[in-house]
Design a binder for these strands. Structure first.
Length: 471
RNA sequence: GGCGCCGUGGCGGAGUGGUCACGCAGAGGUCUGCAAAACCUUGUACACCGGUUCGAAUCCGGUCGGUGCCUCCA
């Protein structure tokens, strides 16, 4: 399979570094609020990447972190639980939002059961961060300032490594004016905090560095360096995240993770998904267009329609979210589900045919090829849509459709494969109605159709006989 | 200001040199007990201006517009 690599700015063939197992790390959410649909779409991308890598025949280990300590989580936790101990308050708040996040993840079809989740404040992670900071300090890559411990980019560069692997850094794209406005106690512009000393009323973990009491909390970037190595080893295969994490977050992770290491590689691939726009505009507080999954569901949309909407475009393009386009995705999803339901209906399950066999095989190949070409999910989905459209005319081959649906589900997570049949009672209603129709007893026929409709089952009378569909 | 990405029919959105995306929506028709569906027909889309080429949505240059990063951010 091929994948775009931000490190090289090109599409490259992908193969795991270690045997047949691909190790993937995804920068997860900061858990201080509901995830908005932009967050969710980046996690749909990460989930899809895992599915595609897996579909390419590799085993996958996929880890995602929660940033459960930072300025925002701390502030919110103090607001919400002012009387609690700061660390207890922080945990209460982040637990709450982690639970909500997992609900959202499941609802949009991301498989949380195959992912490994890590929290920055887990004891082994805190200890790992402290240990890494000590090592960096001893090797001369970190220094102590008044408010914490910083990473020295100058020292990193002097050791022969490149700071600026993901983004070309030049003197001209760093604004001197802005630097002077920042109240940082650090040696150079890009030096970043590894550890922050405790301020009043902030949660803190004990830490001593070079005999000095540094009790406080970790910086943002160090979390991911430690969690990724903890979960996956180093170097690992693919590091994913939103495009806004390219710099400085991922650049800084690379620096931390490779300072003093012989291998200059943290991960062989960095992939980034682009932003979701709302009606052509970026999400912003002032435009009041931060939609959450709750907003989508309260308007009556299936969360999977949002997933399909995301999959219908390429992850490296900005996706324009409009309610109209979500409705289009929902209609398509409905059609795909109705198509999948045909496998239960003998009237549509025609005899096995060479034509169907060929088109299933072609669709399967088309889907896999598209998806392995840097995740062209939009093209891949079009094969499904085409099959669904042909079904009415050509019928389906239930036995051969099922394996196709299984593959589609593994790749897209649209829940096509395991849809249940209608109940025996509902089947009886259908049969009775058809008998009534045969004797032109329209009153009975219509009454039975109404009964089915009340149960969420629609009926349409086709040339092949009645076909039911879920409304 | 520096470094990028993008601009495709009503909406969304693939596609990187040469018949087609695809989805949703719309229009006309056929069929039909009704309903729904299905089927047929229907759009000569590629921001603008130049250039390269036998041929460009696709390559090159410019213009305009959108958007991202450079600061917390999926």
């Amino acid at each position: 399979m091929k994948l775009y690599n931000t490190l090289t700015r090109s599409v490259e063939p992908f193969q795991p570094l270690r045997n047949n197992t691909a190790h993937i790390y995804t920068c997860g959410p900061t858990v201080y609020n509901h995830a908005h649909i932009g967050n969710l779409s980046s996690f749909i991308f990460a989930d899809t990447l895992r599915r595609v890598v897996s579909g390419a025949g590799y085993d996958v280990v996929h880890a995602m972190n929660y940033t459960d300590v930072d300025d925002k989580t701390i502030r919110r936790s103090r607001e919400q639980f002012p009387d609690e101990d700061p660390r207890v308050a922080l945990h209460k708040l982040t637990n709450e939002y982690i639970a909500l996040f997992l609900d959202d993840m499941s609802a949009i079809g991301n498989d949380i059961n195959v992912m490994q989740f890590l929290r920055a404040t887990d004891t082994p992670i805190i200890e790992g961060m402290q240990q890494l900071i000590i090592t960096l300090y001893q090797q001369g890559f970190a220094y102590i300032a008044d408010d914490g411990v910083y990473f020295s980019i100058e020292a990193y560069r002097k050791s022969g490594k490149t700071y600026g692997q993901l983004l070309e850094l030049t003197a001209s794209n760093t604004s001197e004016a802005r630097i002077q406005n920042d109240e940082y106690d650090k040696d150079s512009v890009h030096d970043f905090a590894l550890w922050k000393k405790q301020k009043d009323n902030e949660p803190a973990w004990q830490f001593t560095l070079d005999g000095q009491d540094m009790t406080g909390r970790p910086g943002w970037h160090i979390e991911c360096s430690v969690m990724s190595r903890h979960a996956l080893g180093q170097p690992f295969d693919i590091h994913t995240g939103g495009i806004d994490l390219v710099f400085p977050h991922h650049e800084n992770e690379i620096a931390q993770s490779t300072a003093g290491e012989e291998n200059p590689l943290m991960a062989q691939f960095f992939t980034h998904s682009n932003h979701t726009l709302i009606d052509g505009k970026k999400m912003s507080k002032s435009l009041n267009n931060f939609y959450t999954l709750t907003d989508i569901m309260s308007k009556g949309f299936n969360p999977l329609a949002f997933r399909l909407k995301v999959l219908q475009s390429h992850y490296r393009n900005q996706v324009n979210f409009t309610w109209e386009s979500l409705e289009a995705a929902q209609n398509l999803l409905h059609n795909l589900h109705a198509w999948a339901d045909l496998k239960h209906q003998s009237s549509m399950a025609h005899q096995p045919s060479e034509t169907l066999d060929q088109s299933y095989k072609a669709a399967l190949k088309g889907m896999l090829d598209a998806v392995q070409d840097d995740l062209n999910t939009a093209e891949a989905i079009s094969y499904l849509a085409a099959l669904a459209n042909e079904a009415e005319e050509q019928g389906i081959d239930a036995a051969k459709l099922q394996p196709l649906l299984n593959v589609a589900d593994r790749l897209f997570g649209l829940q096509l494969a395991d849809r249940p049949d209608i109940t025996t009672a509902q089947k009886a209603l259908l049969a009775t109605r058809q008998n009534a129709r045969d004797t032109k007893d329209w009153a009975t026929s219509d009454k039975l159709r109404d009964e089915l409709t009340a149960q969420g089952i629609g009926v349409r009378d086709t040339a092949n006989g009645p076909v039911w569909y879920r409304q």
